[in-house]
């Protein structure tokens, strides 16, 4: 009797360990994306084409189009941005060279200089990143199974995470609605001190029945494991104080090209037009 029992214990224990091993070895779209993200961060240079669009009931209320060229070897960056809301359009160019950011805005004669050397946001250690990675890995365990991967003929992978309604975790939904509610309140407070840097967006003031309807993330990863395209789409619905229903659609489209082949040419900054701009103070 005892021998039989010990055999059952041994066999079931082995099968259990085997299944654990095979579950852990599942390479999901999540892992593929994570690896690609890491690889992409190591790229020395790239050109990013960044589009952001916010629609309110199918009407565009804000859009931005930027071309971002980055060369981390020579510490050179250039961003050219076109912002538009319902009525205005504005263009802006930013350059990073010699450790400083310079902002040139259309229609303004001055060049703004931002001193980024005192920026405290660069103390991320590798250890912290690993801890955060573990935390995210465990917290998103159920979402990871919903990520699908499709391989295209040219060897690129398309990774999709599409969450609608009940699939969006309750806590995430509640937290983001809370944030939106507060963002609207903050926008009200800031209205007075408008800076002439950015175009103002008039977001509808959602008041109740706010909920996230859909979150869709897609990424295309190429053969070299670089992320070539990334799109994010978030649909949010809610009602304002007058009980009018709003459907806000936020879409972000990011295309990356010329990995490790982008060259950024420094521009001449006329020294007499430079104005110091205190960032965030």
């Amino acid at each position: 009797m005892n021998k039989k029992l010990l055999a059952v214990i041994g066999i079931s224990g082995t099968i259990m360990l085997g299944s654990v091993y095979s579950i852990s070895a599942n390479t999901s779209g999540y892992d593929l994306y994570k690896e690609a993200l890491k690889k992409t961060h190591t790229a020395e240079s790239a050109t990013l084409d960044f589009n952001l669009n916010i629609e309110d009931n199918k009407k565009s209320i804000f859009s931005s189009h930027s071309i971002f060229k980055s060369d981390s070897v020579n510490q050179l960056n250039s961003i050219s941005t076109r912002l538009a809301n319902e009525s205005e359009v504005s263009n802006m160019n930013m350059y990073k060279q010699a450790g400083n950011w310079y902002v040139i805005k259309d229609g303004l004669d001055q060049v703004y200089k931002m001193d980024m050397s005192k920026n405290p946001h660069h103390s991320n250690t590798v250890e912290l990143k690993d801890d955060v990675e573990n935390l995210i890995d465990v917290m998103t365990k159920n979402l990871q199974q919903q990520i699908t991967v499709a391989e295209k003929k040219d060897g690129n992978h398309v990774i999709v995470l599409d969450l609608t309604g009940k699939e969006i975790p309750l806590s995430a939904n509640a937290l983001s609605t809370l944030m939106i509610k507060h963002a609207v309140m903050l926008q009200d407070n800031n209205e007075m001190e408008s800076s002439d840097f950015h175009i103002k967006t008039k977001l509808p003031e959602l008041d109740h029945e706010i909920t996230i309807k859909q979150v869709k993330l897609t990424a295309q990863v190429n053969k070299e494991n670089y992320i070539e395209q990334q799109t994010i789409k978030v649909i949010l619905t809610g009602k304002d104080k007058q009980d009018t229903r709003h459907e806000l659609v936020l879409s972000i489209n990011l295309n990356a090209t010329n990995y490790n082949q982008t060259t950024v040419t420094p521009v001449e900054i006329p020294a007499d037009k430079v104005v110091e701009f205190n960032h965030g103070r």
């Binding site: 309604g165 009940k166 969006i168 309750l170 939904n173 509640a174 609605t177 809370l178 509610k181 008041d207 109740h208 029945e209 706010i210 909920t211 619905t237 809610g238």
Partner: peptide
């Protein structure tokens, strides 16, 4: 919590 409209099914699963 009247500002948020959480899906009913979502609450059931919570």
């Amino acid at each position: 919590i009247d500002w948020v409209a959480l899906p009913t099914e979502n609450i059931n699963f919570t």
